[in-house]
């Protein structure tokens, strides 16, 4: 089963700059694919396409649903997105409320949502912060809080833009243990060797708006071309 399939995706920003130049990619269910490449190679642009925030030419299929303006809402329920500027992810004034906002199914009662949200916060080690503003958290806590919100929505495919950001070693380890324990399909952009080694099953190498190569992580970590791109 393929959770994400992209064929011939092209995209130009309004100023005419070509950001994606024929991307082909397949991510199998359960795979955790690291998307690596130089700054400006198009990683963020590609991830934004998968949730329909950008609209280029080409085919995208998420969990078996082909992307179209009619299906984009269903796709957004299946795909969770972690912004690299994670502080913009939060909408509600308090953390518990924010995680509840992401809870699915939408129809469940506030009481059910509250229980579910509390469970996720606990799983991410944030049970003490229910009342706090998400914006008051440290950067590591913020990443985990945003992920809790995504997971509460039962996302099947996780798209993570630079999930490690500027986390310290302990924060990175904590986040990784949570991430790998989730058992979800993931596509994450990163420049960090640590993340590739510990979390990825596959590595996709991006350059100038194309995906040059997709390889299993063991092989990738022996390739000089890959090691040049991560540190």
């Amino acid at each position: 089963m393929i959770d994400l399939r992209i064929k011939g995706l092209r995209f130009d920003y309004p100023d005419g700059r070509r950001a994606l130049d024929g991307v082909d990619l397949e991510v199998e269910r359960g795979a955790r694919m690291a998307l690596i490449g130089r700054n400006g190679s198009g990683k963020t642009t590609l991830l934004l396409h998968v949730v329909g925030l950008l609209d280029g030419h080409g085919e995208i299929e998420v969990c078996g649903i082909p992307m179209s303006s009619a299906s984009v809402h269903d796709i957004r329920k299946k795909a969770g997105y972690l912004f690299s500027h994670v502080e913009y992810q939060f909408i509600m004034p308090d953390l518990l409320g924010d995680v509840m906002l992401g809870c699915s199914p939408v129809s469940s009662s506030p009481e059910e949502k509250r229980i579910k949200a509390k469970e996720w916060l606990e799983r991410f080690g944030l049970e003490r912060y229910h009342d706090r503003s998400p914006l008051d958290l440290s950067s590591g806590e913020m990443k985990r809080a945003a992920l809790a919100g995504i997971m509460a929505g039962d996302a099947e495919l996780l798209l993570l833009d630079e999930p490690l950001g500027n986390l310290d070693r302990e924060g990175a380890e904590h986040l990784l243990s949570v991430l790998t324990g989730l058992g979800r399909t993931m596509l994450f952009s990163t420049h960090r060797r640590y993340l590739v080694e510990k979390a990825a099953t596959h590595v996709a190498v991006m350059a100038r708006g194309r995906i040059d190569d997709v390889v299993p992580v063991k092989k990738a970590l022996r390739s000089p071309a890959v090691l040049e791109l991560i540190y």
Binding site: L53, F83, I91, G97, G102, V106, H130
Partner: peptide, 23 residues
């Protein structure tokens, strides 16, 4: 910039209607 990002987050996350977390 902030509003653009926030708008993107709202598009992705507001499937339901924001309710209250207060007991």
């Amino acid at each position: 910039a902030s509003m653009r990002h926030l708008q993107a987050a709202a598009i992705l996350r507001l499937h339901g209607v924001p309710g209250s977390s207060a007991e």
